[in-house]
Design a binder for these strands. Structure first.
Length: 525
DNA sequence: CGTATGGACTCAGAAACGTACTC
DNA sequence: CGAGTACGTTTCTGAGTCCATAC
């Protein structure tokens, strides 16, 4: 790289960190002052006080950036076979780390060093995430099991534990937040993971038989004189009807985001006569923006909770997640705020999914996506619009316009031919018959219809992420049963990973109903 | 009892990667 | 048939939830 216009030599360690920064030149992070400041502070520590480099502004990282771009290009230019071989070699070398006795391991690689990339306006963005060594790693293995050999010669594990009350296989302290841990867990397809997944959905399903009385109960409490009880009632309402998250307290060194209990007064505004306008940053700094017509008592309660409070003050000042969850436990064993999200997501999927007998396979899978979309909207699962979205839309529109012109030409020609006149638009030596033209016309109509539908679906889903709800919120048994009833191959809706993750749900009866809480619902709390 | 902290797990979107489709 | 692209899948790791325990 260049410093003050002149080439400069760095030690490998210094250069490694410079490279982390250099490659981010064209990203959003590079333009954020906090990111640049945090990076510079950490890099400076490595450079030391007497280093030639004293000012970040005088650094020119372009040579490193160009080198990296060239490396990337080289990799891209490799033939398919070379790539495949490289991948196989890597997989072979790693295979011994990817399994434990009973199942596969999810994340068996340690996180490599890099610059921390928080979501949203994270105060720690740009900080150096240091390299992890065996000395950082705590292993959890059977008492009699041989201790895995440390792969780095001359190093040793931090600790070896034998704790069979937890599922983690190893952990290390997160270098950015040393009080937090990074765990190595079993793979999603593991039967252990499947078991707890099934329990999660069973618990949510159990809500079916309780939900009416819970709603009745909190509705009654909207009028409570006791402020805490009233806040609990309104918060439960929001969590239930809007699928809000619980909203734990957050530290100042984290991104400023909220959930239900941590909503500030400015996040909800009143819009007469009875609408609430929500606007806040939730998990991952995803914006939640919604206008909801609520019942009068909720409207009045929010009005009261806001009264006399300045910006930045908690809307639910008498509440936190533990109080709320403690209250929910009175309704049902194990009931917490997040159970409502699972319940309402699964409920929505089941009620949205129409019994589309007689439809084509494509129509059926489209119906599934439509229901999936409703769930994603409920849970506010968003994605950023892809870079080329508008260009892609324009291309599709142009294509449709082209087909429409063709359609008109075919229609005129058909008219001519039917009257025994020569076609105007056909350039073929032998003029097409009326029959041929009719067939082509029908084909063109079908293509126009399909493309128009594709276009609207694409536009519709440009900011909606369907995957998260499918993986985490919708009881897979609803999907499996629906597919069985409609003779849809399950592979049409679940990919390989989901098939493995939901193995426990595959032999459900076709008449399974999430909302008919027969299975286990009557257990006493 | 309430509150703070530690700990372990689920949930989250972006980026990287692979593949099928289109022209 | 080859290149370019669009789209689905996998990987990555950050960001939540919630429980247990200590004071």
């Amino acid at each position: 790289m260049l410093y003050n216009g002149r080439p400069i030599d760095l030690t490998p360690e210094e250069e490694e960190i410079a490279t982390m920064f250099a490659v981010m030149k064209d990203t959003d992070y590079a333009t954020k002052p906090v990111f640049v400041k945090n990076f510079w502070e950490d890099w400076k520590k490595v450079l030391g006080p007497k280093h030639v480099i004293q000012k970040l502004e005088l650094c020119d990282f372009t040579p490193i950036f160009d080198w990296h771009a060239a490396e990337k290009e080289k990799k891209k230019q490799m033939s398919a076979e070379e790539k495949k071989q490289l991948k196989e070699e890597k997989a072979k070398a790693e295979e011994r780390y990817a399994w434990v006795l009973i199942d596969g391991v999810g994340n068996f690689r340690v996180e490599p060093p890099g610059l921390f990339r928080g979501r949203g306006e994270h105060p720690k963005m740009g900080k150096l995430k240091r390299r992890i060594f065996p000395e950082d790693i705590v292993l959890n293995i059977g008492k009699e099991a041989p201790v895995p050999e440390c792969p780095l010669p001359g190093h040793k594990w931090k600790e070896v534990r034998h704790d069979n009350t937890v599922t983690w296989l190893a952990f290390w302290n997160d270098p950015i937040n040393v009080k937090e841990f990074k765990y190595v867990f079993l793979h999603q397809s593991s039967s252990l993971k499947g078991k707890s997944d099934e329990e999660k959905y069973d618990k949510a399903r159990k809500l079916t038989s309780k939900i009416d009385s819970i709603r009745e109960s909190y509705t009654k409490d909207f009028k409570e004189k006791d402020v805490e009880a009233r806040q609990i009632a309104v918060a439960t309402y929001l969590i239930d009807r809007l699928a809000l998250r619980a909203g734990n307290e957050k530290d100042d060194d984290e991104a400023d985001t909220v959930g239900c209990c941590s909503l500030k007064v400015e996040h909800v505004s009143l819009s007469p006569p009875n609408s609430l306008e929500f606007d806040f940053l939730g998990k991952d700094s995803i914006r939640y923006q919604n206008s909801v017509v609520v019942n009068e008592e909720v409207y009045d309660a929010i009005h009261d909770f806001k009264k006399g409070k300045k910006e930045g003050v908690d809307l639910f000042d008498r509440l936190d997640t533990s109080k709320l969850n403690a209250h929910l436990k009175k309704y049902m064993q194990g009931l917490t705020a997040k159970v409502f999200r699972t319940y309402n997501a699964s409920y929505t999927l089941e009620t949205q999914l129409k019994e589309t007998l007689g439809a084509t396979l494509n129509e059926k899978t489209a119906e599934y996506s439509r229901a999936n979309k409703e769930v994603a909207i409920l849970c506010n699962h968003q994605r950023t619009v892809s870079k080329g979205h508008s260009a892609q839309m324009e291309r599709l529109e142009a294509k449709i316009a082209e087909l429409k012109t063709l359609r008109e030409e075919l229609a005129t020609d058909l008219g001519k031919v039917k009257k025994g006149k020569p076609p105007v638009h056909s350039t073929a030596k032998r003029p097409p018959t009326a029959e041929q033209l009719e067939k082509k016309l029908a084909q063109t109509d079908a293509r126009i219809a399909k493309m128009t539908l594709d276009l609207s679906v694409k536009e519709d889903l440009k900011t909606v992420a369907l995957g998260t709800s499918k993986i985490n919120y919708m009881d897979p048994r609803i999907t499996v049963a629906w597919c069985k009833r409609h003779e849809i191959p399950i592979e049409k809706v679940f990919n390989k990973s989901l098939l493995a993750k939901f193995a426990w749900a595959m032999n459900v009866e076709p008449n399974f109903r999430f909302c008919e809480a027969d299975g286990g619902a009557d257990e006493d709390p």
